[in-house]
Design a binder for these strands. Structure first.
Lengths: 236, 236
DNA sequence: AGATTCGACTTGTTATAACAAGTAAGTCAT
DNA sequence: ATGACTTACTTGTTATAACAAGTCGAATCT
C-alpha cells in the first residue's frame, strides 16, 4: 500500500519541525517552494500544509505564509478549594481580560430550566464573554444566572467575571458539578477564537451551587484546545 | 465581503442536519449530487463536505459516501472516591475491552524519571493498550509503571487494566494528580482510533500515588473527543 | 444456495489553471 | 520622517480533468 504524496511531504515537514529545524513561530516553506522542492503540484503542496494545520503543528495566514505554531498552554486548576480563573492565571503570569458580548434577560430553554430548577415563569440572565489571555482570544464563556442575581448585579456583571462578584456579595459557591469535553470549532467559534474551522476546543460545562445545594449559575467555558488545559487532583 | 461558496454549501448542509433533515448515521448527498444541486465543481463540493468533517458533523468513507456522525459520548467520572474505568463504563451500559499493544521493560526518559522519582539506574515497564468501547476504538492508554510492580504482575497486566490489579494486590491508589487537555490526532493516533487526521482527542495525563505519596504509575489516556468526556464535582 | 464477476457509484489523489485577496518591502513625493 | 503607491510574494477560491481505490447490488456461474 503506497502512502499519498501529500502525506509523505507533511510527515517530512513534521519531522523537521520536531527536530527543531523550524522553531515555533518560524515561517515554513511557501507553497511554491514546496512545489519546487518535492516536484509536485500546488494542490499537493497545499494539502501537505493543510495536514500540518489539521494536526495543530502549523497555522497559515493569507498573503503571509505558513508558520509553526507556538505551543504554550495555560493550565487552570480544578481542585478544591476553588480558585477563580483570573487569580489562577495571574499567578501563572497570564493577564486575563475580556470583552462583554452579551448581557440580557431572556426566557430560559427547557434544559436551562431543568438545570437551574426553575419553577413557574422565571427568566434568567444570559451572559456571553470573550476571554483574552495576554490580549489574544482564548475562550468564550456563556452562562445563565438566576434572574434575581442578574438584576441585582446588573451594573457589575458585564465588567467582571461572575464568580468573584457572587463571592463579594456573600453568595459563595459551595459546590460545582461539571463536565469536560472537547469539540471542534464551528464558524461562530472559529471567528471568536481566531482559529481555523475544526480546531479542537475544550468545553467546561458547569453548574454552580450555593448553600443548600441551590443551583444559581449554569454555563460553559469554551476554550482553545491549543491554549488551555485543566489540572486536578483526586483523593481517595 | 462575500462568503465562499464552499462555506455557503456546508452551512446549508449543517442547517439541514441540525433541523433533523438528516439523522445521525444517515448518508449525505454524494459529491456528484452536490455538484448538481448547487451548480459547482467537484472541488467545491468536496470542500463543503470537508468543512462538515472538520466540525465533527460528518465522516466519509471511500466508495460509500458521507454520513452524519452519531453523537454519543460516554462520560467518565473523575470524582472521589475513584471509580475504575471498566466499572464506570459498565454502569453506563458500555462494554470496555482492550487490545494489548505493548508491555515491556525499558529505560525511562528523563521526564519519566522525574515524575516517578526514580533514582539510580532503575527501569520501568511501559504498557500500551487500545481501549474499545462496544467493539469500537475509543482510547489509547500509554503508561509507565515502577519496574518492581511490572515484574511482579507481568502475567496479569497485559490482560487487565492496571488500577484494578494494583487494588487487588493491596497497592491502593491514594491520590491522582492529572492534567486534561485536548490535542489533534496525528497519523499514529488517527490509525489507532479510526478518526480522520486532526480529529480532536482528549488527553488525560496522570500520575498515581500509593501510600506515603509515592508515585508508582504515570501515563496518559488519549481518547476520541467525540466519544468521551469527563464529569467531576468540586467542593469548596 | 453460495461464490464470483461486473457495472455503477462513491470518495481519494494528483494534475493544470486562473483569478481574488492579503502582506510586505521598496520607491517616490511631500 | 511620513504617507501613498507599486511590485512581488503569499495564501484562498474555484474550475476542469483523469485515474485510483473502495463499496454495493445485480447478474451469472457452479
Amino acid at each position: 500500500m503506497s502512502i499519498p504524496l501529500h502525506t509523505t511531504i507533511s510527515e517530512t515537514l513534521r519531522s523537521q519541525i520536531e527536530a527543531g529545524d523550524y522553531s515555533p513561530g518560524e515561517k515554513l516553506p511557501s507553497e511554491h517552494q514546496l512545489m519546487a522542492t518535492f516536484d509536485v503540484s500546488r494542490i499537493t503542496a497545499r494539502r501537505a500544509i493543510a495536514n500540518l494545520v489539521h494536526q495543530g503543528l502549523a497555522h497559515t495566514q493569507r498573503g503571509k505564509g505558513a508558520f509553526v505554531t507556538s505551543k504554550q498552554k495555560v493550565a487552570y486548576s480544578l481542585s478544591s478549594p476553588l480558585v477563580f480563573l483570573e487569580q489562577d492565571l495571574a499567578q501563572k503570569g497570564v493577564h486575563l481580560s475580556f470583552e462583554n458580548l452579551m448581557f440580557r434577560e431572556e426566557i430560559p430553554s427547557k434544559q436551562t430550566c431543568a438545570i437551574l430548577q426553575l419553577t413557574g415563569q422565571a427568566n434568567i440572565y444570559v451572559q456571553k464573554k470573550l476571554l483574552q489571555m495576554d490580549g489574544a482570544a482564548g475562550a468564550v464563556d456563556i452562562s445563565y444566572l438566576l434572574s434575581e442575581l442578574g438584576q441585582r448585579f446588573a451594573a457589575q456583571l458585564p465588567n467582571n467575571m461572575t464568580f468573584p462578584i457572587l463571592e463579594k456579595n456573600n453568595i459563595p459557591i459551595e459546590h460545582i458539578s461539571a463536565l469536560i469535553e472537547c469539540t471542534q470549532a464551528d464558524y461562530e467559534m472559529s471567528n471568536y477564537l481566531e482559529v481555523p474551522l475544526g480546531h479542537p476546543l475544550m468545553v467546561y460545562r458547569y453548574t454552580a451551587y450555593s448553600s443548600h445545594h441551590r443551583p444559581i449559575l449554569h454555563g460553559e467555558t469554551i476554550s482553545r484546545g491549543d491554549r488551555f488545559c485543566y489540572v486536578l487532583n483526586t483523593q481517595r
